[in-house]
Amino acid sequence: MSGDEAFPLKSNLMKPYSRNQLTNERRMFNYRISRGRKSVECAFGMLTSKFALLQTPTSLRTDKIDIIAQSMCVLHNFIRMHDGVFSIPKVPNHIQQRHYEADLPRDNKPKNLRTCLCKYFCDFAPIPHQDVYNV
């Protein structure tokens, strides 16, 4: 999950580097994490427009929310496939496929995880224009 600078950095909540700590690599990380967050917000917006349940506070038990959210995603994809507007994202040719689990820090400290993600975005999975992005 990604938050903005107002959120705390946690192992399950990544946030961008603050503006006074930016290097070129950190700027690229901030750009990539921002793109990811925007994609999630857009996807949730599409689900919200389709399922009215998401437009109001819920009184559902928390152990049921995951299965309901997953069911909504499956239904949404089924509807898009039926309507002929479903597409499978393509991985660009310049991104090398590799497993990075071995590169993850063993301690799961948030700062170490963020550093590892920063390195991954910059070194192993760059996008062509990320180095010219200005924050």
Rank of each mutant, 00 (worst) to 15 (best):
S2Q: 12
S2N: 11
G3V: 06
E5T: 11
P8A: 02
L9N: 02
K10G: 01
N12F: 10
S18R: 09
N20M: 08
N20R: 10
L22H: 01
L22I: 02
F29S: 03
N30T: 06
R32F: 10
R32L: 08
S34G: 10
S34T: 07
R35T: 03
R37T: 05
R37V: 05
S39K: 10
E41I: 03
E41Y: 02
C42H: 15
C42F: 08
A43C: 07
A43F: 11
G45D: 03
G45S: 02
L47V: 09
S49F: 05
K50Y: 00
L53D: 12
Q55I: 00
Q55N: 13
T56K: 15
T56V: 08
T56L: 12
R61H: 14
K64W: 08
D66P: 14
D66V: 07
D66F: 03
I67T: 11
I68T: 13
A69D: 12
A69H: 14
C73A: 02
C73R: 00
N77W: 03
I79M: 11
H82W: 12
D83L: 14
D83T: 14
G84D: 07
V85T: 12
S87I: 09
I88M: 13
I88V: 13
P89Q: 06
V91L: 11
P92N: 05
N93T: 14
H94Y: 01
Q96E: 13
Q96C: 10
R98Q: 15
E101V: 05
E101G: 06
A102G: 07
L104Y: 08
P105T: 09
D107T: 12
D107H: 07
C116P: 03
C116H: 07
Y120L: 15
F121P: 01
C122H: 00
F124Q: 11
A125M: 04
D131V: 10
V132T: 14
V132W: 06
